[in-house]
């Protein structure tokens, strides 16, 4: 995949890692805030949120680092494998993370048993990384986005709007990642949409923590 994008999008390599490092820091901040909330309230959904963003952050870090290593190796054949490995780790981490978030929402509405949701996520892991597997990720994100949209339509709160915007951006980002298989220009667009999503989450975090 790297070789496919390396030619027309060589100018963008490096920027993608930078964007992923920024997103990693924001994901870590969200995870920390969720952990603080869990420690205070013992509310399990906040623990799921914490682990979800820990996984998202870890995936972004691994993917960003693998890209940097490949870039520094000047696309040495041995290191190019690292890029695919980084992407796969990031993909699996995101699949579990968004699956956890969906599980947290389902737990709250209690429409589904824990076993069923866990089985759905685990069985999704057996798919190989391909367009179909990417579609599963988009499906999970669409569910989360729909949930956050409903939450915003009820609360009309700015923080809810920011979270909805964030997940909508992440959904678009993954759609672009899917499209990039066909059209390379979607690769930078996907990274920009992903970064925008995390910046919206940062905005929400800053608003929550501003002194009253």
């Amino acid at each position: 995949m790297l070789l496919a994008i390396a030619q027309p999008l060589a100018w963008f390599l490096g920027f993608d890692s930078l964007m992923e490092f920024i997103a990693f820091v924001i994901a870590a901040a969200v995870a920390y805030q969720a952990l603080k909330g869990y420690r205070l309230s013992k509310e399990r959904t906040l623990l799921y949120l914490h682990f979800s963003f820990v996984l998202i952050g870890a995936g972004l870090l691994v993917d960003g680092l693998s890209s940097i290593v490949v870039l520094l190796s000047q696309f040495h054949r041995g290191f190019v494998v690292l890029y695919a490995l980084g992407y796969t780790i990031n993909f699996i981490a995101q699949l579990i993370a968004y699956g956890l978030l969906v599980f947290a929402y389902l737990q709250q509405t209690r429409n589904i048993s824990a076993q069923f949701a866990a089985t759905a996520v685990v069985s999704a892991l057996f798919f190989e990384r391909n367009a179909f597997a990417e579609l599963i990720l988009i499906f999970l994100l669409v569910y989360i986005t729909a949930h956050t949209a409903m939450n915003y339509s009820v609360s009309k709160a700015t923080n809810s709007m920011l979270v909805f915007g964030a997940f909508a951006s992440l959904t678009i980002a993954h759609f672009f990642f899917l499209m990039f298989i066909l059209v390379p220009i979607f690769f930078p667009l996907a990274h920009i949409a992903q970064l925008l999503g995390f910046l919206l989450l940062l905005g929400m975090l800053l608003r929550v923590n501003q002194p009253s």
């Binding site: 909330g37 205070l40 509310e43 906040l46 929402y105 975090l205 929550v208 009253s212």
Partner: peptide, 20 residues
């Protein structure tokens, strides 16, 4: 202090649509 922290946590959780 607890109530101040709780308001932040509640605001954070409700932004995601979670009830505490």
């Amino acid at each position: 202090e607890f109530m101040n922290n709780f308001k932040k946590v509640e605001s954070f959780a409700s932004a995601f649509g979670f009830r505490i």
